[in-house]
Amino acid sequence: MTKVLDNIRLYGSFLKTSLKEMLVYRLDCIVGMTSQMVTQAVEIIFIWIVFQNTENLAGWNFMQIMLLYGITLLSVGIADFCFDALYDIGPKYIREGDFDKILLRPVHPLLSIIGGSKEFTSLGYFLLGLIITIIMLVKLAIPITIFLILKIVFFSIVGALIIGGINTICSISSFWTYRSNEFIWSVYQIYTFAQYPIDIYNGFIKFLITVILPFAFVAYFPTMNYLGWDIYLIYLSPIVAIVLWIIAVKVWNLALNKYRSTGN
């Protein structure tokens, strides 16, 4: 247990360094955050157009879909910030040989790598998610109680952990291909499926986003809870996150044993 706590404390200091780095690249950071928000404009326009053509989508109206969207962005923002360095394992660490240095540190290499994340621009996602969530909660007349705020904070972090777990599992592909980024990215993109009511999909995709890649637990089931539609499924999210991380650490350790340096 102390080991887990030590690791969390260590991660905290990694996080602090990353946040400080934001101040160094101030201009780039602002440009990046703005651009991230602009990209999201694409998605928001699509949702807007959809609701020009229909009153509701599988029983969800515009504001409810936007709430789901905002809640998703909260988790995505946190996850992108905290787990971005997973994309670097192949191209940066392994191919360039930096991975050997990381192995020599007295810390688990996974923590070393994840701690090096500094994708501060994804805070743009987070901010946008926060704004949309607040507006939609007000518009939907959902009472913003302390309990609801705590719930949203907690389950946003859990959602980010689910995304991070899935990304970590996918990142082991870098031990074979030396370029993990595309594979993680491909799988990660599937989270966009869970930004819409899962009732619009066929059985295969429903199964995909609830069981195989449980992205529906990131924001979809939590949002149903906030809307008062489904009270219980949300509480499976932490369990999903824990299971994913147990699998992630296990497969990562297995893959680590297979690691052969590219040696340069």
Partner: peptide
């Protein structure tokens, strides 16, 4: 392929509803 899935299913849902 992932990108097209959402678009198609959303429009299908709209079409079947309206």
């Amino acid at each position: 392929l992932i990108e097209v899935v959402v678009y198609i299913f959303v429009w299908q849902a709209i079409y079947y509803q309206t």
